[in-house]
Amino acid sequence: MNIYRFVIEFLQIAILLTIAPAFTGWVRMLKCWSQGRTSAGLFQPYRDIIKLFSKDVLLADNASWIFRFTPYLVFGTAVLAGGIIPMLSLELPIASAADVIVLVALFAIARFFTALAGMDIGTAFGGMGSSREMTIASLAEPAMLMAIFTVSLASKSTSLSQMVHVIYSGQTVIRPSLAFALFAFILIALAETGRIPVDNPATHLELTMIHEAMILEYSGRHLALIEWANMMKLFLFIMLGAATFAPWGIAQTGEPAAIFAAFLIMLVKLVIVGAVLVIIETGLAKMRIFRLTEFLGSAFLLATLGMLSYFILE
């Protein structure tokens, strides 16, 4: 049985590695359609990654080991997070290595090193990207914690599997606090994964770049790892949201049939979330950076209202 749980663990990581690019492809495809363009297809991200892996690395003269180490670390944290967030099953052997707070911190460590890598080469762009990224992160963090707090009130736990358990076992209760937390989480996830209206993942225009500015000097396998990890990060945030707010489908046992059903339901969720994401991204324009205080302030407000409404109304 124990071995079998590790098999599920590896299955999850394999799904993370393989599905994440397809999900990015799906979002790009929908976006192209919604804007009347022809899309490059679902599998274009794979082709990009493979192409990048086969290319040589061009390294700036001044790059130190931090610049070379960062892609591996970013990749490593993403994979580890994939082993912790329940996507298919709750029976994950290393899931209790980290609760939601640790997960957030895992993303933070990847961000910390990416920001350092941005400053390593010594261009103005790198520094600009790092500075903005860290600013946004520091505004997003209180909101994120508040959302976690609100969610943990209902389940009395910050461990993801426990949250899922509680939602499964509880009777259908309409919780305003969870609705608020969900809204807050969506805003935060948009900020953390660098989507419109916070950052534009497709831009290479100097003054609007945030994440792209930090990784501008990367090439070859380093860039491939970072891009891949970035796709995984988006995927992981969706899985995190799904596990917290809509866990239905995740298998509580380790039976193969249940796992397979969980996999199918996960795909359905991804398709829906992709469509929602595209609607948000096409409907909104990128914000001015100093308007982000209000954007993330609203996220904080929503999460706090969730917390308050738990105490006041539930």
Binding site: V173, I174, P176, S177, A179, F180, E294, G297, S298, L301, L302, L305, S309, L313, E314
Partner: peptide, 20 residues
């Protein structure tokens, strides 16, 4: 009762929405 509190939450939310 649950619907009631849910709607109360939304009333509060719209109040905040107007505020900002």
């Amino acid at each position: 009762a649950q619907l009631n509190s849910f709607l109360a939450a939304f009333v509060l939310l719209t109040a905040f929405g107007m505020l900002v």
